[in-house]
C-alpha cells in the first residue's frame, strides 16, 4: 500500500476534481480520507495474485441499435433548464485565454 495520503495529495485531488477547500477542510479531509484508505488495507490479507479484476456485475457488451430517426428530447425544453443559453446553445463565460 502507498504511504498515507498527505495534505498535498488532497490539495492536488481537489484541484483535479474542480473543488476549492479551505484550510480547515483540507485538514479534515486529509484525516478522514486517511482513515478510510487505511481501513481498506484489510484486503492485504487476501491473496489476489491470480484474480482477474471484475469491473461490472454483468458481462457487458456494446449494445447497438439501428440508426433510425426517433423521438428526442425537446431542444427548447432542455436549453430552458440551462443556467444560460443563446442561439440554441449552452452559454458559458470566457474560455479562451484562461489558465487551464
Amino acid at each position: 500500500m502507498p504511504a498515507r495520503i498527505s495534505r498535498d495529495d488532497v490539495s492536488h485531488v481537489a484541484r483535479l476534481a474542480l473543488l476549492e477547500l479551505t484550510d480547515d477542510e483540507l485538514e479534515r479531509y486529509t484525516e478522514q480520507l486517511g482513515a478510510i484508505l487505511e481501513h481498506a488495507t484489510d484486503v492485504e490479507a487476501l491473496d489476489l495474485a491470480d484474480v482477474a479484476p471484475l469491473s461490472h456485475p454483468l458481462p457487458v457488451q456494446n449494445v447497438f441499435r439501428d440508426d433510425e430517426p426517433g423521438d428526442a428530447l425537446d431542444r427548447e425544453e432542455v436549453l430552458g433548464q440551462a443556467p444560460a443559453a443563446e442561439s440554441g446553445r449552452f452559454r458559458v463565460p470566457a474560455i479562451l485565454g484562461e489558465e487551464p
Binding site: 500500500m1 502507498p2 484508505l37 481498506a40 484486503v43 487476501l46 489476489l48 484474480v51 482477474a52 479484476p53 471484475l54 469491473s55
Partner: peptide, 12 residues
C-alpha cells in the same frame, strides 16, 4: 493499489 485491487476483491 486502490481501484485495481478493489476490482480483484470484487471478483473474489
Amino acid at each position: 493499489a486502490y481501484y485495481g485491487k478493489a476490482l480483484k476483491v470484487r471478483r473474489l
